[in-house]
Design a binder for these strands. Structure first.
Length: 415
DNA sequence: TCTGGGGTCCTAGGACCC
DNA sequence: TCTGGGGTCCTAGGACCC
């Protein structure tokens, strides 16, 4: 039996924890560059603000009613860690599925509903994050139960066949975990509209039309566990750092500096996970939302002679990849760096004549330590350019303080 | 003026091997 | 004239997730 704990409107709720003045207002959190809505409070949803909707397309009159915030992932990540620590305290087996969702193993717990009600209350009281919990024999059903819990009850159990029957009859198939927009359209064309209909559809038809993944979903809806709790996060296969720029950038040096910055950041992520990369890629895009402008989306990838997590090695590679990549007189709107062929250094295949991995681990560890202690970007490499306001910077005009991770941003109480 | 970022898995098709 | 069977690896594209 699984429980899925999910923070309600997570990013919007994080914004509210330290700013009571926006508690009952329609709050919208925007994506990087203040582009699209990526979280909405209940009030904002009620006003019709859709997920992923570009904020500049919202009517000005409506826009004025909203409390709009730039995404503050430092804050959300820290709040998430607080919630997870409560979960780990409550249950020995936890899978952190995303920044705002975790699965818990419910086996051995007699009064599951009571347990989850307590847990829900504790999370809210200790962190300020409202949340809901769904309980069911499979992850897919637990996700479904969680969605039902959002409409008021807070905790929903779908343990018995009877409970599942009523719930699945009325549950739109497009809201089932693993069924996206495309699949739900295709399912509709086959006369499948509800979760119950998908559960009861002929398996060979589902396999033939949708593949193995959907049949797994179907089995999970039938109550058969296909997905276990993954307590240990599997190693990444790829690390990608990319950003859209606030403005189109024609200066190739500025793009190169942006890409260098992303490469350094990607290497930090790589080292943090204890991995090394054997391939490096770069890409850039012009502004796809301006079809009248000249478009160019170059991409390049190269295998390294030896695996590394050394920023200097990756930067040198990135510099070579960037040479001649961009076209003169084109304005670029986005760029990124990918690290692939990731591995643990101990698992690398050696070579008689050259080392399996290269780089100075101690130097990099020192660099990481300095930046952890004194703040990101305190020490680094010159290729990033080091400008306080680079041409490729992000737009973040409504950023909230990092209340929980920066001493300067500690909330103040006045009396 | 303004449109995110970071992942996963599966499948089909082509190149290549013996 | 005739032209197999079995496999791997890679890539691109498509679907999904938060």
């Amino acid at each position: 039996m699984f429980a899925l704990v999910d923070g309600n409107n997570f990013y919007a709720s994080c914004e509210r924890v330290f700013d009571p003045s926006i508690r009952h207002k329609p709050v919208v959190v925007l994506s990087n560059n203040d582009g699209c809505a990526i979280a909405r409070s209940a009030e904002a949803k009620a006003l019709g603000i859709r997920m992923g909707h570009p904020i500049h397309l919202v009517e000005p009159a409506m826009r004025r009613q909203l409390v709009v915030r730039s995404a503050n992932f430092t804050l959300y990540g820290d709040m998430s860690a607080r919630v997870v620590s409560i979960l780990r305290d409550a249950s020995p087996r936890v899978e952190v599925y995303s920044i705002d969702e975790s699965f818990l193993d419910m086996s051995g717990i007699r009064d599951r509903e009571g347990f989850c009600r307590d847990l829900r209350e504790r999370i809210h009281r200790w962190t300020g994050i409202p949340n809901c919990i769904g309980i069911a024999p499979t992850k897919t059903l637990a996700k479904l139960a969680n969605k039902l819990a959002k409409s008021g009850q807070g905790v929903v159990t779908l343990a018995s066949r009877q409970q599942q029957e009523i719930a699945l009859q009325n549950f739109p198939v497009g809201d089932v975990w693993g069924v996206g927009k495309r699949w739900s359209e295709k399912l509709a064309s086959l006369g499948i509209f509800s979760a119950a209909q998908l559960r009861d559809a002929p398996t060979d038809l589902i396999l033939q039309r949708f593949g193995i993944v959907m049949t797994r979903t179907q089995r999970e809806l039938q109550g058969q566990t296909c997905m276990d709790l993954e307590e240990v996060e599997p190693d990444r296969q790829q690390i990608l750092v990319s950003r859209s720029f606030a403005e189109r950038v024609e200066d190739h040096d500025a793009v190169a500096q942006a890409v260098a910055t992303f490469a350094v950041r990607a290497c930090e992520k790589l080292r943090r996970r204890g991995l090394v990369a054997s391939a490096v890629g770069v890409f850039a895009h012009t502004d796809a939302f301006r079809p009248e402008l000249k478009q160019h989306s170059p991409t390049r990838m190269i295998s390294l002679p030896a695996a590394t997590s050394d920023s200097r090695v990756v930067l040198g590679t990135v510099r070579r990849l960037m040479t001649g990549l961009l076209r003169p007189d084109y304005g670029y709107k986005k760029a990124g760096v990918t690290l692939t062929d990731l591995a643990r250094p101990s698992e690398l295949q050696g070579d008689l004549f050259s080392p399996a991995a290269v780089g100075d681990d101690r130097l990099m560890a020192t660099l990481d330590q300095i930046n952890r202690k004194f703040g990101r970007g305190v020490a680094g490499l010159g290729a990033s350019g080091w400008k306080p306001k680079p041409a490729w910077g992000m737009r973040q005009q409504m950023l909230s303080p990092c209340y929980t991770t920066s001493v300067r941003d500690l909330p103040r109480a006045t009396c």
